[in-house]
Design a binder for these strands. Structure first.
Lengths: 167, 167
DNA sequence: TTTTATTTTCAAAAAAAACTGAAAAATTTA
DNA sequence: TAAATTTTTCAGTTTTTTTTGAAAATAAAA
């Protein structure tokens, strides 16, 4: 397989994988394109390579920047803005975990904190409900702590430690 | 807050949380409804409680059964089928991890195995590309192994072991 | 300042996903 | 067996999400 074919396939696969996890296809494809691009690209490059409009390109790049997955790059002598993405997948994974925690897990935990039935608390059904919610809240909190630990950790340290425990 | 209000809020929240992770809202809501229901429910119950059509109810329940998140229950004397969902969130989480691994992670790993540029392999750009892909493949494999370990493990053993390592 | 280049916005269009409801199929009871 | 009930299917509809493209805003150059 040659480089261009391989890149194309990777971009398509990353787009389809992302869309199964609630990330829109174009955003995932732009991310993939920048991850495998040796040089920073500008908006026109992205438009041409992925066949998407200027507006779409602009909005999804901005969103990727908000996620911390893409950075603006200044190239001297160039008037247009250029963009790059981190290539170290471990760092990428940490960024995604941090953001999903902040955007989705933490709001869920806050919501669950206030969700308790105070009436008729000796009723079996009420007890079960409160326990189910408590279980979800605790699992979410534990997941949040785990993410924090992973984010702070060095890749090799983390996996080695994990494998040791798991043995 | 009373039980019915709390259930309603939980169902709405679970639906919205699910849809951020690529699960359709109704499917997540049916799952939530069954998780907090003290008794098995039939299709008519679900239709009425969530205000959705019979077809929608049927398809999403089937999908939840495919995921292993909902079970059919036979109630003697009843002609209709009834449904329940596991209430232990740890078991639920393990089921979801196992299924997402099987449906999404493993296909990605298989795809990445075949994705290698063999032409011009001393070229810097080709080298970088192959390394990026290799990194993604290795992280995915590691994630897969971690999921396998979690699935096999007992909840308390897992968290205790994890906390010990992480300290 | 004016002109040119670039980026951003957003209403409208297109595409994708989800949902409905009634007919068909399957199952159970009589 | 036929009748009654329940479940499933899926073409058509609705809703939601994504995308376009042109105008407006911004920034840089002349």
């Amino acid at each position: 397989m040659n480089l261009d074919e391989a890149k194309k396939e990777f971009i398509a696969a990353w787009g389809s994988f992302g869309s199964k996890w609630g990330i829109n296809r174009t955003m995932a494809q732009i991310h993939a394109l920048l991850m495998v691009s040796h040089y920073p690209l500008n908006a026109d490059d992205v438009m041409e390579l992925l066949n998407v409009s200027r507006g779409n390109t602009n909005m999804n790049i901005r969103e990727l920047i908000n996620w911390g997955l893409v950075d603006r790059v200044i190239i001297s002598g160039e008037r247009k803005e250029f963009f790059t993405a981190e290539k170290d997948i471990w760092k990428v994974a940490k960024t995604i975990m941090r953001e999903r925690k902040r955007r989705e897990l933490e709001p869920l935990i806050d919501f669950l904190k206030d969700l308790k039935v105070n009436e008729d608390m000796q009723n079996e059904e009420v007890k079960t409900f409160n326990e189910t919610i408590k279980g979800i809240k605790e699992l979410s909190e534990q997941a949040g702590k785990t993410i924090d630990t992973i984010i702070k950790s060095d890749e090799h340290w983390f996996w080695n430690a994990f494998l040791k425990i798991m043995r």
